[in-house]
């Protein structure tokens, strides 16, 4: 088992609105349990505000759950040392602003490898290989982010994420900011990486059709809870929960 999420909860306290009353609290995630095997793609779908990104942040260890645990490779993610944390990488929604504008893309893709024992030549070769895998030319390494389109930048962000050979990729709305024609290309790329590198994915989207096109299994989230989960074929063929049926109607 690569990832095991055990009954996690996360609440956010909003700024106090009244001097003598407790500040309002948003229960963003309320008791979620999930597992993910090596090489598997688990899709998380739910409307805006259902707590998907909050769940992703806890998996990445950016935030600790108030209750419950996240296990990565049998280790508690809250106490994982930084080196082990490189085993999980993340791709974000906004490709336009996710790369440092001052650094060439070769530099950015190679940077996560700095803390490893690799030599400069090895890092360079790895960066070139990863750019090639996402469909860019290693000759592009000296170019800067502003010279690329949104879809290309998302590919570069993916190349950087897979540079340290992670076992798990958390992708939070990775195609939501892209044109529909480009979306399919990036989804194909992710499936390709899943197959060739055995990369497991936690794939998050508000769009059930997108999730269904890539995931092996789907978990449907609403108000911080999982209302339905199962193999993609089953969810698509016979959605049980009314919320899932509503998502299909919307798609």
């Amino acid at each position: 088992m690569l990832l095991s999420i055990e009954n996690v909860h996360r609440r956010y306290a909003l700024p106090r609105t009244h001097l003598f009353r407790a500040p309002p609290v948003i229960p963003a995630v309320q008791g979620i349990s999930l597992t993910l095997d090596r090489g598997e793609i688990l899709g998380i779908v739910g409307e805006s505000g259902s707590g998907k990104s909050t769940l992703a942040r806890m998996v990445m260890g950016f935030e600790r759950p108030d209750r419950g645990r996240v296990w990565l490779n049998g280790q508690d993610s809250a106490t994982l040392p930084r080196a082990a944390r490189r085993q999980t990488q993340m791709v974000f929604q906004d490709p336009y602003d996710s790369l440092d504008p001052r650094r060439s893309i070769g530099w950015s893709v190679a940077e996560p490898l700095l803390a490893t024992s690799m030599t400069t030549t090895e890092r360079h070769a790895r960066a070139a290989d990863r750019l090639a895998r996402v469909g860019l030319s290693p000759a592009d390494m000296a170019r800067y982010p502003h010279e690329f389109s949104g879809g290309q930048r998302q590919r570069i962000a993916i190349a950087r994420a897979i540079a340290p050979d992670p076992a798990l990729l958390v992708a939070d709305e990775p195609v939501a900011a892209l044109d529909v024609s480009v979306q399919a290309q990036v989804l194909n790329l992710l499936m390709d990486l899943n197959r060739t590198m055995g990369l497991a994915m936690l794939f998050i989207s508000h769009d059930l059709a997108v999730v269904a096109s890539i995931a092996d299994r789907i978990a449907v989230m609403q108000h911080g809870r999982i209302v339905e989960t199962g193999p993609t074929a089953q969810i698509v063929a016979a959605p049980e929960h009314p919320y899932t049926q509503a998502l299909f109607a919307a798609a």
Partner: peptide, 17 residues
């Protein structure tokens, strides 16, 4: 506040770097 700072942190770099 920029996204690329968050994403750089997410790749596992030290906060000082």
């Amino acid at each position: 506040r920029q996204t690329y700072i968050r994403t750089a942190t997410a790749t596992g770099l030290s906060p000082a770097r």
